[in-house]
Amino acid sequence: RPRTAFTQNQIEVLENVFRVNCYPGIDIREDLAQKLNLEEDRIQIWFQNRRAKLKR
């Protein structure tokens, strides 16, 4: 699968959610997927990668 290119707006929304909860449940991820026009699994991976970035 090709790399997902997130828009600046999508990143802002994801970062705002991350600040509140870095482990969002499936319900939050599915809601975000619908709002941001992305697949839920892409959102899940984004949070996984963002948590890894935080640990660095």
Rank of each mutant, 00 (worst) to 15 (best):
K53G: 09
I45Y: 12
L38T: 13
L38H: 04
D41E: 13
I45T: 13
I28L: 08
K35W: 02
V20C: 08
E15A: 01
I28S: 05
Y23D: 08
E12F: 14
R3Y: 15
Y23T: 10
K55L: 04
R19L: 01
D31L: 06
V17M: 08
W46G: 00
F47V: 01
F47K: 06
Q10T: 04
P24A: 02
V17L: 07
F47A: 02
Q48E: 10
P2L: 15
I43E: 00
E40V: 08
L38W: 01
N16W: 02
A33P: 00
Q10C: 01
R3M: 14
P24C: 00
E30A: 11
Q10D: 07
V20D: 13
Q8P: 10
V17G: 00
Q10A: 08
V20Q: 13
L32M: 02
I43S: 00
E30H: 14
R29C: 12
E39Y: 03
Y23S: 11
L54H: 10
E39L: 05
C22G: 09
R56G: 13
N49A: 14
E15S: 01
W46P: 06
L14E: 01
G25A: 10
L38M: 07
E39C: 10
D41M: 09
N16M: 08
L54P: 14
F18D: 02
V13N: 07
R42N: 12
N21A: 00
D41C: 10
Y23H: 08
L36C: 05
F47H: 05
F18A: 04
N9A: 09
E12M: 04
F6E: 06
Q34E: 10
L32V: 03
K55T: 01
K35Q: 08
D31R: 11
E12K: 15
C22Q: 14
R1I: 15
L14P: 02
V20K: 13
P2Y: 15
Q48N: 07
V17D: 01
E12R: 06
R1V: 13
F18V: 00
I26V: 11
N16A: 06
F6S: 01
D27S: 14
N16R: 06
K55Q: 01
A5R: 13
N37H: 07
Y23A: 12
A33C: 09
R3H: 05
E39S: 12
T4F: 12
R3K: 10
V13H: 12
D31F: 15
Q34D: 08
R19Q: 09
G25P: 14
V20M: 10
D41Y: 12
Q44S: 10
K55S: 06
A5V: 14
R19E: 07
L14C: 13
Q48G: 05
K55N: 11
I28K: 01
N49V: 06
N49C: 05
D31K: 15
C22V: 06
F47L: 01
K55V: 03
T4H: 13
A52Y: 08
P2K: 15
K35V: 02
Q8Y: 07
N21Q: 09
Q48R: 13
F18R: 02
C22M: 15
L38E: 04
I26Q: 12
I26P: 12
F47I: 05
R51I: 07
P2R: 11
P24Y: 06
E39D: 15
R50A: 08
I28W: 04
L14Y: 02
I26A: 11
A5T: 15
D41T: 12
T7P: 03
T4G: 13
Y23C: 12
R3A: 14
A52S: 10
K35S: 05
I43V: 07
P24I: 03
N16P: 00
F47Y: 05
P2A: 12
E39Q: 09
F18L: 05
L54G: 15
R56Q: 15
L54Q: 12
N16G: 13
V17P: 02
L54M: 08
G25R: 03
L36S: 01
N16C: 06
T7N: 10
L36M: 10
I26H: 14
I11L: 08
P2M: 15
N37W: 01
R50S: 03
E12S: 12
D41A: 13
R42M: 12
L38Y: 02
T4K: 13
E12W: 02
Q44E: 04
C22E: 14
Q44W: 07
I28T: 09
V17C: 08
R51N: 10
R51T: 07
L54D: 11
I28M: 03
R56E: 12
R50C: 03
L36F: 14
L54W: 08
L54T: 11
L14T: 05
Q8L: 04
V13A: 07
L36E: 00
K53T: 10
R42D: 06
N9G: 10
Q10F: 00
R50Q: 14
N16Q: 11
K53M: 11
E30L: 13
Q48A: 14
I26E: 08
A52L: 05
P2C: 12
I43W: 01
N9H: 13
F18S: 01
R51L: 02
I28R: 03
R56D: 15
Q34M: 12
T4P: 13
L14S: 02
V13C: 09
D27E: 13
L38Q: 08
N9M: 15
N9R: 11
I45A: 14
E15T: 02
K35D: 04
D41Q: 12
L14I: 07
Q8G: 06
K35P: 00
P24V: 01
Y23Q: 08
R19A: 07
A33E: 01
A33L: 00
R50G: 01
A52H: 11
L54S: 09
D31T: 04
N21H: 04
N37M: 03
N49L: 09
R29G: 02
I26F: 10
Q34W: 10
K55E: 15
I28H: 07
N9W: 06
A5H: 14
N16H: 02
Q34P: 03
F18M: 00
Q8N: 07
V20L: 09
E40D: 10
E15V: 01
Q8C: 09
N49P: 03
I45V: 11
N37Y: 03
R51E: 03
Q34I: 10
L14N: 05
E15G: 03
T4N: 11
W46Y: 15
R19D: 03
I11E: 14
I28C: 04
Q44C: 12
I26M: 06
E30G: 10
R1T: 05
Q10W: 01
N21P: 00
V17H: 05
V13S: 08
G25W: 02
N37L: 07
L32C: 00
G25M: 02
F18P: 02
V13Q: 09
L36K: 00
L54Y: 08
E39N: 08
D27K: 09
E39I: 00
R51A: 06
E15Y: 04
P24D: 03
Q10K: 01
F6W: 06
L38C: 14
A33D: 00
T7A: 11
R51C: 06
E39W: 02
F6D: 03
F18Q: 00
L36D: 01
T4A: 09
L38D: 03
N49W: 05
R1L: 07
I11V: 09
T4R: 14
R42L: 09
R3S: 09
R42G: 06
D31M: 07
A5M: 15
K53W: 06
N21M: 11
D27Y: 02
D31S: 11
E30C: 11
N49Q: 10
I43F: 04
R51V: 08
K35E: 12
I26Y: 09
E12V: 10
L36Y: 05
N49G: 04
R29Q: 07
K35Y: 06
A33R: 03
R29M: 15
R50H: 08
Q10L: 02
R50M: 06
I28F: 02
Y23P: 00
T4C: 15
F18E: 01
